[in-house]
Design a protein around this nucleic acid. Structure first.
Lengths: 208, 208
DNA sequence: TAGATTGTTAATCGATTAACAATC
DNA sequence: TAGATTGTTAATCGATTAACAATC
């Protein structure tokens, strides 16, 4: 199975969400590439190609089995292999993410939250006690954590990244408004708000 | 000036952030496409193409004037034309976004926040009093608001979108975990957390 | 069977990268 | 001047779309 590109992963996720949502409302055994394509405004061939790329086969004149597709996507995207993460930063954004219920359905379990603010340390966020940043590194080591979610201010973020990477973290989900540097074997996914902002601002300015 | 695609907008934003950040640290009058390219891991030709697309000209052997580039990007992306927005939802995420200081630098001013929860209505979020959803539509009409930022639960989001669109909103910045339907003249930017999640989960599963 | 849908090959489209004369 | 950097054209690459025989 070849390495899947980002755009493909995103489409797979959209298929998955669409199938999960619609089958809840009106259960269907099968779905055609055309139905998915129309709902998500994608070419039907694209859907079949993507399914083919992850080894899903359809049936002529019938389409694809919904359950099989969902199972296939779950498997490929790795939702079935639970992984634990630490949240770095217990501010508004960190708390918002901690409170997000759906993560469990994607295999993600945020097992601890850390902050530097003495007023926050010891308090509870979504049922977890906020710990001091000093405990961060030992915690990651002890629990073999591979993912760190970063919701800290720009100025301290790089230092914290260095620390968690040296403790063994293999992926950073970066919500901090800064580009962080990591060794080549560490994966970073950036969620810079400014990218969305640029698109919004541009379209509003265009429209006048 | 041709319509700019999403990837171009995102690159422009990255250039802008890079130039703003680095000139703060070590002020430079000029910058070459090669310097930008190396820092952002982009092809130098790409940088020159993007600059050319928005009418920025460099100087042989010298490069581009930093100030001129920043001004050009600000102008094209529309950061210089201030626009007001309403925040729909005063939960963790809504509060986090309200508290974000940098928006002003991009022309965005969140002038009001709305929620359905009686316990939140009347309280302050980042200096703004949370208003009832009942005031949403009249407020948008009265102030000619063109952007709504959506941080509500999935189940109520579509209804709220319909309402703000009928009140005249022209763009939706959607942080709700659902695909919202809008008329063709309304622009939607989705920030579904699940897309990032799929990439993270996939890479962690691959790595094993 | 007839007809809708698949899987796959070929064609198109657009975006990225390479090459290089023009420029300061 | 010499040499680094630009602007632009051409070449490459990859992704999307079209076409269509095979299938149920």
């Amino acid at each position: 199975l070849a390495q899947l590109r980002r755009v493909v992963l995103e489409r797979l996720m959209r298929y998955y969400r669409f199938l999960s949502e619609t089958t809840l409302r009106r259960p269907a055994k099968t779905v055609t590439s055309g139905q998915i394509a129309e709902a998500l405004d994608i070419d039907p061939t694209q859907v079949r190609k993507d399914f083919g790329a992850i080894g899903l086969l359809g049936m002529g004149r019938v389409g694809f089995e919904v359950c099989e597709v969902c199972r296939g996507i779950r498997h490929v995207l790795g939702f079935d292999e639970p992984y634990e993460a630490v949240m770095i930063g217990a501010g508004h954004l960190g708390s918002a993410l901690m409170a997000y219920k759906n993560f469990a359905g994607y295999g993600l379990d945020i097992v601890a939250v850390f902050d530097n603010d003495p007023r926050k340390i010891g308090s509870k966020v979504a049922g977890r006690t906020v710990q001091s940043m000093r405990s961060l590194k030992p915690f990651i080591r002890r629990h073999n954590i591979r993912l760190a979610i970063l919701t800290t201010p720009a100025d301290v973020s790089q230092k914290l990244v260095d620390r968690v990477v040296s403790a063994g973290v293999k992926a950073i989900w970066n919500f901090a408004p800064i580009q962080v540097a990591v060794p080549p074997d560490v994966f970073v996914r950036n969620e810079h708000i400014s990218l969305g902002l640029s698109e919004i601002a541009y379209h509003l300015a265009q429209e006048i």
